[in-house]
């Protein structure tokens, strides 16, 4: 069965893209293909000039670490860790910075998402909106080329939805990163630079 068929998608730095469409149309599948979480049976995925669709698991994992930041509908924080430690997790894996520099950067990102005063609080003790903002900070931790967000505000109230969306888009634009957003929310899609509707595994426009 083909989930995606004839899909061609290119994203530029500093722009925010929305992929919209009914449930089951292949939006998330496309996002996971772009984020190298899934491997396509056919077709190609290029990131920063590197062909990733035929790369082995090690190269794809390394590329995810360096080039991709994910924000999911559920925050997926490690609840045993503090907010600060959660944001530092991708940095510790990449090991590009020294531990003090990692901490400094993580504290800076948490301050940007409005959680500077809750950096050392356990993730389990944060509200849903705060947890999702920590997830945004975590996605930005390694300064990825692309931030891929799958319904990032799906579990949040209107106020927090707006806050998380504004954070994602403004930070990405500031840092020259691409944001690819899967959403059901037409208002949110309307605020993106480019909207790509999907139906039955194909872009319809």
């Amino acid at each position: 069965m083909h989930v995606l068929r004839g899909v061609s998608f290119a994203a530029e730095r500093g722009r925010v893209y929305a992929i919209v469409g009914p449930s089951g149309c292949g939006k998330s599948t496309l996002l996971y293909q772009l984020g190298l979480l899934d491997q396509p049976d056919d077709g190609q995925v290029w990131i920063n000039g590197g062909l990733m669709s035929v790369a082995d698991d090690g190269r794809r994992t390394a590329a995810r670490c360096r080039h991709v930041g994910f924000v999911f509908q559920f925050h997926f924080l490690l609840l045993e860790f503090t907010a600060l430690e959660n944001v530092m997790l991708p940095m510790r894996k990449l090991a590009r910075l020294t531990p003090p520099a990692m901490e400094e950067r993580a504290l800076g990102l948490l301050a940007v998402v409005g959680l500077g005063d809750k950096a050392r609080r356990a993730a389990a003790h944060l509200s849903g909106g705060e947890q999702q903002r920590v997830a945004v900070a975590r996605a930005l931790a390694n300064e990825p080329t692309a931030i891929l967000a799958d319904e990032p505000t799906g579990n949040l109230d209107a106020r927090n939805s707006g806050l998380v969306f504004d954070l994602l888009t403004s930070l990405a634009r500031q840092n020259g990163q691409t944001v690819v957003l899967v959403t059901h929310n037409p208002e949110m899609a309307a605020r993106c630079d480019d909207v790509r509707p999907m139906r039955d595994g194909q872009f319809v426009r």
Binding site: L37, D57, T61, R66, G69
Partner: peptide, 16 residues
């Protein structure tokens, strides 16, 4: 499993 998935998504290898 979800924590494993997020660790994998942020670049932790199968070996990790």
């Amino acid at each position: 499993t979800k924590e494993i998935a997020i660790l994998r998504s942020m670049g932790y290898t199968r070996n990790d």
